[in-house]
Amino acid sequence: MVVTPQGNHMTPVKPPSGAAGAVATTATSPLTKKDGKLAKVRRGTPTRSAAARRRDLPVALLLIIPSVVGFLIFYAYPTFRGIYLSFTDFHVLSPPNWVGLANLREMIHDDVFWHSLWVTVYFVILSVVFGTLVSLVTAVVLHRVTRSSALRGVILLPFLISNVIAALVWQWMLDPQLGIIDMALQHLTGHSIDFFGSGNWAIPALAAISVWKWMGYYALLIFAGLQTIPPTIYEAGRVDGAGEWQMFRRLTVPLLRPILVMVVVLTVINSFQVFDIVQVTTKGGPANASNVLQMYIYNKAFSQFDFGYAATMSLALFALLIAVTFTQLRLARANESDLN
């Protein structure tokens, strides 16, 4: 998904078209400034003979066998089969039964599905807004005051542990009887909140876990982006008398736009697929309050063995992800950086 805008960057040379094309393309390909690195690599190759190329082919085919086989069996085939299954009535034990759009019709009239979609969107909005905000502020502050890679390492720590552990420890800290956060709440406000047992708090609590887990990762992505902004731009801003806040708003944020868009897109994609932390803590409860789409799909498939319907919902989620991502990329013009 994120790779699409890079298409031109990845394939500066078009696949050879004619018989003589193999030699000709490398020599005549238009080399833009961006492809300078590749140009250097290729400079030596035009001298290689067509014979060497023919000798490369069998070895190349041998080396890509595992990748191609893996792609065909575990990516291409399941993708098409998933689309096919979504039009069938399929309960694993008996072969799939073509039912056309029946699953789709069921989905449109399924209140639980719409509720799940809403719950998921709520989770995504909370995760994206707070996650991006906290990551951005953390990255900018880090970049302004310290070069310490140890500190950057520390904030990355939650990213390295599994969702399951993150969910368990937060559930323990938020426990309505013995949790340390709940003790603090009782101390401060006088009453306690059963975060995972309450319909209103389950999704915000799950989003908080997700933000805690991913904040450091996104902050480091933004930090890497900050490092590509030339310091001279800030010096110029300072000469023009811009204050700290003005420079953040007028220089940092616009120049970071491509990376901010990427962080938002990644957060949206990841959040729509949330499952682990829900499965460990609430299992979708209480009363479907945290029944995110992925949880509902899982239960349909593995508790009720309704694989056809589960596949339909997966397909809907897939279509939704593509639509949302393309809209975001389009709205934000992610390809363009103001830096060039």
């Binding site: 998904m1 790779v3 696949p15 190349a60 191609v68 792609f71 299954l85 499952f275 997966s314 897939f318």
Partner: peptide, 25 residues
């Protein structure tokens, strides 16, 4: 260097487009 190299590569890389969650089932 072999003919069709970039084409095959681009096809394989298209796997990035499909979210993992869709292929689980």
């Amino acid at each position: 260097h072999w003919r069709g190299r970039n084409l095959v590569f681009n096809v394989l890389i298209s796997a990035l487009m499909v979210p993992g969650v869709f292929m689980l089932l």
